[in-house]
């Protein structure tokens, strides 16, 4: 009986939602509200105003740069929350790592990962660098780097991963995302424009688009590296346990 009622409820909900959807303007029609105001400008002018072929990258990194900065801050808040609860690694203190497994990892999987890991890494660089002409960008590329590190950690163990990518290296790079944003934004202010306008002072107009493209690229790289390092730090912090002996 209970199942019947839940089914009935779901059916009623489905009918309601379908009714609402059927009253919405069709996808891609001329009179959709979102196509009236800001979208046409993005679609028409994005390429020359931001110097990126991919409109989405232009919107994320230029028109709505502040928004993206907020998103980067959200990632940092996640890291801060994890660290507030678990804490960073401290010098001179010993940590046990939870993956001291007695079950050795499979040779086949290890060899396959050794073969594929460079390709995955290069693919993530491609995703970061070609954010302006293809789907992708800093966040996505950073996530791919994080994913490749996850398999590395599951197969080779956490101790090895943390020693290969030490905190000394991770800590400065984590700030790369915000830092690149602020510095490139500040360049715009120095150049006499708005924050994040990607203009350099006293540049001939013919050089302007190229400069914009390269600065966008710089921001993308910053977001990618910073995001990847934050993901990796969260992973390491979650897998770690305090108070044991370092090593196997």
């Amino acid at each position: 009986m209970k199942k019947f009622f839940s089914l009935l409820f779901i059916a009623a909900l489905a009918i309601l939602l379908l009714y609402v959807v059927s009253n919405m303007p069709g996808m891609g029609e001329e009179d959709v509200p979102t196509r009236q105001n800001v979208i046409p400008r993005y679609l028409e002018n994005a390429e020359e105003e931001t110097g990126t072929e991919n409109v989405i990258t232009g919107v994320i990194l230029n028109y709505r740069g502040y928004d993206t900065m907020g998103e980067v801050t959200v990632i940092f808040t996640g890291l801060a929350a994890v660290i507030a609860i678990i804490g960073r690694e401290r010098r001179g203190k010993n940590y046990a790592y939870t993956d001291l497994s007695e079950i050795a990892s499979s040779v086949i999987v290890r060899i396959a990962i050794i073969f594929l890991a460079p390709l995955i890494l290069l693919f993530s660089f491609y995703t970061i660098l070609h954010g302006d002409v293809s789907p992708g960008g800093g966040f996505q590329g950073g996530a791919i780097i994080g994913a490749s590190l996850i398999i590395f950690t599951t197969i080779f163990g956490l101790w090895e991963s943390t020693s290969r990518i030490p905190q000394k290296l991770r800590f400065p790079l984590e700030g790369a995302a915000l830092l690149s944003f602020f510095s490139v934004g500040a360049i715009g202010i120095i150049g006499g424009g708005n924050f994040l306008t990607y203009t350099l002072p006293r540049l001939t107009t013919s050089l302007q688009p190229a400069v914009r493209t390269w600065l966008t690229l710089l921001v993308e790289i910053g977001i990618g590296v910073g995001g990847a390092m934050v993901f990796i730090s969260i992973l390491f912090a979650l897998l770690r346990e305090e108070g044991g002996v370092v090593g196997y």
Partner: peptide, 20 residues
Amino acid sequence: AFLLVSSATCGHAIGRSAFV
């Protein structure tokens, strides 16, 4: 090429986890 390598490896990984 990627599909060939990854599906064989994935099949082995799942089978191994069930076997172990």
